[in-house]
Simulated scan of single mutants.
Amino acid sequence: MHTPEHDSHITELADLFRLLGDTSRLRVVLACLAGPIAVGDIAQRLGLSPSLVSHHLRLLRAARVVKADRHGKQVFYVAADRHISDMLGDMLEHIAEPHPEND
């Protein structure tokens, strides 16, 4: 049964998948899975500018995909919760599975 609330959740989920559909943004999230990491470290690891990484992180924070934790002057980012890390981990496992030729 479709309800307005159900449709709203479907729309929100589609928006989340669109957000994660950007390769650079997805790489930023994946860099945050292992634990707290600073913007500069993400930028260096991924070969992106710190300003671009910050832009992606702002969008990801707004969507509750990552969260920020300030330590002094530095801000560290990490996956927002277990749901995000589990979903991405499961999807990475899925694409690593062998692809049968005739499925």
Rank of each mutant, 00 (worst) to 15 (best):
V29A: 02
T3L: 10
R18P: 02
A68P: 01
D41I: 01
A68C: 00
V28S: 09
H94C: 11
D103Y: 01
R27K: 14
H99I: 15
V65A: 06
M1Y: 05
R25P: 02
D7G: 14
P50V: 05
R61V: 07
H83W: 14
S51Y: 04
L16N: 02
R45Q: 10
A38K: 08
R58T: 09
S8W: 02
L60A: 07
V28E: 00
H83Y: 13
L13N: 10
F17A: 15
L20R: 06
Y77D: 07
A38E: 12
A14L: 12
V29S: 02
V66Y: 02
V66L: 03
R64E: 12
D22E: 13
P100D: 12
S8D: 11
L20G: 12
V39T: 14
S8R: 12
V53Q: 05
G21V: 02
H99T: 15
S8N: 10
A14H: 05
S49H: 11
F76A: 00
S49R: 13
L59K: 14
R58K: 12
K73S: 06
D81P: 00
S54Y: 00
A80P: 01
I10N: 03
G35F: 10
V53D: 00
G89D: 12
R45S: 09
A34Q: 11
G89T: 15
D103H: 09
H99Q: 15
H9P: 01
A14Y: 01
V53R: 04
H83V: 13
E93A: 15
V39R: 10
T23K: 14
L52S: 12
I84M: 07
G40I: 05
I95R: 15
D90A: 15
K73H: 07
L33K: 12
G21T: 07
D103P: 09
V28W: 01
K73W: 03
L92E: 14
I10T: 09
R25N: 06
G40H: 09
H83D: 11
Q44P: 07
P4K: 10
R82N: 05
F76S: 00
A80Q: 12
L46W: 00
P4V: 04
V75W: 00
H56F: 07
P98G: 12
D86Y: 01
G47E: 04
L46S: 06
S85W: 01
P4W: 03
G47M: 09
E97D: 07
L60M: 06
N102Y: 08
A68Q: 04
L48A: 00
V66D: 02
L52A: 08
L33N: 00
E101L: 14
L46C: 05
A14F: 05
L26Y: 06
V66H: 09
E5A: 13
R61T: 10
S49A: 13
L19S: 08
V78H: 02
A63E: 10
S8G: 11
G35Q: 03
L30W: 11
Y77R: 04
H94L: 15
D7I: 11
G72K: 08
S49T: 14
Q44E: 11
M1T: 14
A63D: 11
R82M: 01
F17S: 12
R70V: 13
I95N: 08
V39F: 01
R70C: 02
M91C: 11
R61S: 07
A62V: 06
R25Y: 06
R82G: 02
V53A: 02
M91N: 03
D7S: 13
M87V: 03
G40C: 04
L48R: 13
A63P: 09
K73G: 01
L13E: 04
G40D: 10
Q44D: 07
